[in-house]
Design a protein around this nucleic acid. Structure first.
Lengths: 230, 230
DNA sequence: CGGCACCGTCAGGGAACCGTCAAGACGGCA
DNA sequence: TGCCGTCTTGACGGTTCCCTGACGGTGCCG
């Protein structure tokens, strides 16, 4: 799992704590922005596009709640509030104004990071990527598991779809024969190249204008198949 | 703020605590389901469609972490973990396995409710609920749990509705057979594809002009079913 | 020129899958 | 207790899909 680094904005007016947090987070692979007051936090959020915000209440210029509202006016980035106040209305207030989580000091750095991970996971999982691959007059909709040719849906069998989906996910690139066999048919089919010819032919019959002169599903002899994006 | 009541599933093996929670939550307008062990929790989550789950770790039958994983296998419902363990790996473990929040006992009931509100707000904001799905002459009203065909209400059994609701929530997209079985019938029905054919047929009898040539509930052999939005 | 490897095509049988009808099991309710 | 709606289980025909096998074409190389 070597995902691209997630970016966290740390907002804290205590330089010592902010520094300690930044060091710890960077050590664990986070990309860290730091702001020391409310105004700087709002600016940094605009320019820095963080994936999550750690917000210490009790800033010099703005009330922490105002920062939350300032952010919530235009972004849904997760906000994890940090505060010394153990009890009272603050927690509830912050959560109801739009904060996503609330951690009281003193806290374990490991726990904070786990909460940050959870916050980021939620927000990224909520935005499902609708992937569509376009190849000439073909549209392969990976989410809906459908292919259309000049707008008309084309009916595929499960195996045909599995084959095409694999090519589409690597559109424009050559997919080795062995990989296709493994991902479509599973293990134990390592030399069943005959299947590939069969199903490539079936797909061509359904998707190509001239199946014997394919423009989309192209064979590279001895190597594999490619879905051309031309 | 007179939204429809949100539904919370409380999972706790201590009857006293579960009762106290339920009373408090109901007093604040929540619709409350209760389960006392892990298996019951998973079943209740399938049949009850809660908006958020409060999960006490340390259940008699299953490990709390197993419950989290059991839920995360098929739903993104927010999970707020409740635990007596203040420190340690448990928190981090739970959050990384898919929990959304973690509250240690003893806790203030007001804080818990604020966290529940935050969790529900997040998940509903992330997936803006389309109250109605229109598919040709059908109108599936997810909020009121009703279907109408050319304006006339159609009576569905609970299982039929659960099936149709799932298709409607993914209208236009193919819903895999396995997912339908998990979300409608729960666990242990992984290969009961026969049910799908039966209930698809029943829905067609009630919803289609020509049940043997369905235009709304369409089968993709070997893969699953789709509610067409034509 | 002839062998070889690879590709594309066609056809057939068995298996998997779908839709349908029917009857038994279960649970709520009068 | 008996009834009724619902869910579950079973059986059957028709269709689709997948695998197997056979044949011809093409490019490469000795």
């Amino acid at each position: 799992m070597s995902e691209p680094a997630h970016r966290v904005l740390v907002v804290d007016d205590e330089p010592a704590l902010a520094r300690a947090l930044a060091i710890n987070l960077r050590a664990h692979g986070w990309d860290v922005l730091v702001a020391h007051d409310g105004r700087g936090a709002l600016d940094a959020a605009v320019t820095g596009h963080p994936d999550v915000v750690v917000l210490d209440l009790g800033l010099p210029d703005l009330d922490g709640l105002e920062v939350i509202e300032g952010l919530r006016g235009w972004t849904t980035v997760p906000i994890v509030v940090l505060s010394a106040r153990q009890h009272g209305e603050d927690k509830i207030e912050a959560l109801d104004r739009g904060a996503d989580d609330y951690v009281t000091k003193p806290f374990a750095i490991d726990e904070l990071m786990a909460r940050l991970r959870a916050a980021v996971r939620r927000s990224t999982a909520a935005a499902p990527t609708v992937a569509q691959v376009v190849a000439g007059d073909l549209v392969v909709d990976l989410g809906r598991k459908r292919v259309s040719r000049r707008g008309d849906d084309v009916r595929l069998t499960p195996t045909e779809w599995s084959f095409l989906e694999l090519l589409a996910r690597h559109a424009g690139k050559l997919v080795p024969r062995e990989q296709i066999l493994r991902e479509v048919w599973g293990f134990g089919y390592d030399d069943a190249f005959h299947y590939l010819r069969l199903y490539a032919a079936q797909l061509r019959r359904k998707l190509e204008d001239d199946p014997s002169h394919p423009r989309h599903i192209v064979t590279t002899a001895g190597l594999g198949y490619t879905l051309e994006t031309g």
